[in-house]
Design a protein around this nucleic acid. Structure first.
Length: 418
RNA sequence: GCGGAUGUAGCUCAGUUGGCAGAGCACCUGGUUGUGGUCCAGGUGGUUGUGGGUUCGAUCCCCAUCAUUCGCCCCA
């Protein structure tokens, strides 16, 4: 028999990793909820076109990272590589633009990208996603960033850096793009890496984001978009910055923060950790005012972010997680004891306690060991004597004190120890 | 798609100029006929990732392949 294994880049999540994930989800529900965000659950499969139209056909994500396949009728489907597109589709399809001024939507779940796995990067990974739709005001930008930073803090994460940039808008970006292209063409383009020479034609802004030392040096004095944005964009960005300043949210301006998805404009931001390997970006987002109309909806502005749960988990794993102690463990010492124990355990759980029992009457020693290993507070012994007397012997595992408690008195005992 | 590292017990890893496959942890049993954590004694557990090659003989050397992992690219 050949053994099955997970698909490359897909992972099983056992304790305690799974607990870290549910803790993050609970924290997200609580924090995002306090800002008025409502949870939205969307499918993980969408028509391929949705992602091409939103993310952009020239991006790496669309060109080489999507899990795409035809269904039984030949329609092209894609396992979502990010959440925003699906949420926008649902937002439009659900008629939200017509009945709400501002929609605040929050979602989380698995995403899929066909990339080479490495630390902090899986083919199936998980993101927390927030989208604020219908507000073009800089206050919305600031609130989204406040909320993200607040969430990260509540989740217990430290040592993070917030980077901020503006990408201009439909009005001013084409002009900047052109002047950047002119600048790049004036350089010794042979010294640029192969990728960047291609990017010059497809997406010149990404040349600025290149990590190759040669490209970095060559483009050091390139015009920045911050200098070239139009007056409304400049004002918008200024307001966002002063709102962050007023709340003492520290950030660094990074004029090269371009981001990989085409729909971003104006404010973009990224939260980076330096402690989890090469893939240090834990959250990223920005404004995408043209996206809703691009997908066939009305002209609604939007801003949001995605937060990578695996990367947060990597940071949290370095910290000790508190252990949950079960209240009881029932050790069985007579062949007929487990049948009674399973029912006694039910009564105890009804009384609000948590615990387990031994399904079989094995050696008492091994059962006590198990109780001890599970860090149970009390070990209940059920043997011949106890069955005859309709009672259990209860041992406090911390003090080693023992008492005898009648079956009927167990709810009262449970009360006394809870 | 490209580059490096690593595959030996459930886990973490030793090992041999090529000669019977090891330790710690975990697990089980006993020391204690019904009492855990410490201690002591014993025990279960391996086609040395897979397939070839060299050799009297390969876990070790060579080739291929698969997997894992770190990095590049890119992204959360």
């Amino acid at each position: 028999m050949t053994k099955f294994s997970t698909i490359k880049g897909f992972a099983d999540l056992f304790e305690p990793d799974s607990t870290v994930f549910s803790m993050l989800e609970q924290t997200a529900l609580r924090v995002f909820g306090s800002y008025g965000y409502k949870e939205l659950r969307v499918p993980i499969l969408e028509y391929t076109d949705l992602f091409c139209r939103s993310i952009g056909t020239e991006t790496d994500v669309v060109q080489k990272e999507m899990f795409t396949f035809p269904d039984r009728k030949g329609r092209m489907l894609t396992m979502r590589p990010e959440a925003t597109a699906g949420i926008m589709r649902a937002y439009i399809e659900g008629g939200c633009p017509n009945r709400e001024g501002v929609s605040k939507l929050f979602s989380y779940g698995p995403m899929f990208r066909y990339e080479r796995p490495q630390k902090g990067r899986m083919r199936q990974f998980h993101q927390l996603d927030c989208e604020c739709l219908g507000a073009h005001e800089p206050q919305a930008d600031a609130e989204v960033i406040f909320m993200l930073m607040r969430f990260l803090q509540e989740a217990g994460l430290e040592g993070l850096r917030l980077e901020l940039n503006t990408l201009g808008c439909r009005e001013c970006r084409p002009a900047y793009r052109e002047s950047l292209t002119r600048y790049l063409e004036g350089l010794d383009t042979d010294k640029l890496c192969e990728n960047c020479r291609r990017r010059m034609a497809t997406n010149p802004l990404r040349v600025l984001d290149c990590k190759e030392p040669g490209c970095k040096a060559l483009t050091e004095n390139a015009p920045t978009i911050g200098e070239s944005v139009c007056e409304p964009c400049r004002e918008h960005f200024g307001s966002v910055k002063s709102l962050l300043d007023a709340e003492n949210v520290p950030y660094e301006l990074n004029s090269r923060l371009v981001r990989g998805l085409d729909y971003y404009m104006r404010t973009t931001f990224e939260v980076i950790s330096s402690s989890i390997g090469a893939q240090g970006s834990v959250a990223g987002g920005g404004r995408y005012d043209g996206l809703v109309s691009q997908l066939g909806g009305p002209d609604m502005p939007g801003i949001g972010f995605a937060c990578g749960m695996e990367r947060l988990a990597l940071m949290l794993q370095e910290k000790e997680q508190p252990v949950q102690r079960p209240d009881f463990y029932i050790a069985c010492q007579a062949p007929e004891a487990p049948a009674t124990a399973v029912r006694l355990a039910q009564r105890l759980r009804e009384s609000g306690l948590a615990g387990e029992l031994s399904f079989a009457a094995k050696s008492l020693k091994s059962q006590m060991r198990l109780a001890s290993k599970n860090a149970a507070r009390f070990c209940l012994l059920l043997g011949e004597t106890e069955l005859q007397e309709h009672s259990v012997t209860i041992k406090n595992m911390d003090t080693s004190e023992q008492v005898s408690v009648a079956f009927d008195a167990l709810p009262a005992w449970a009360q006394s120890v809870s």
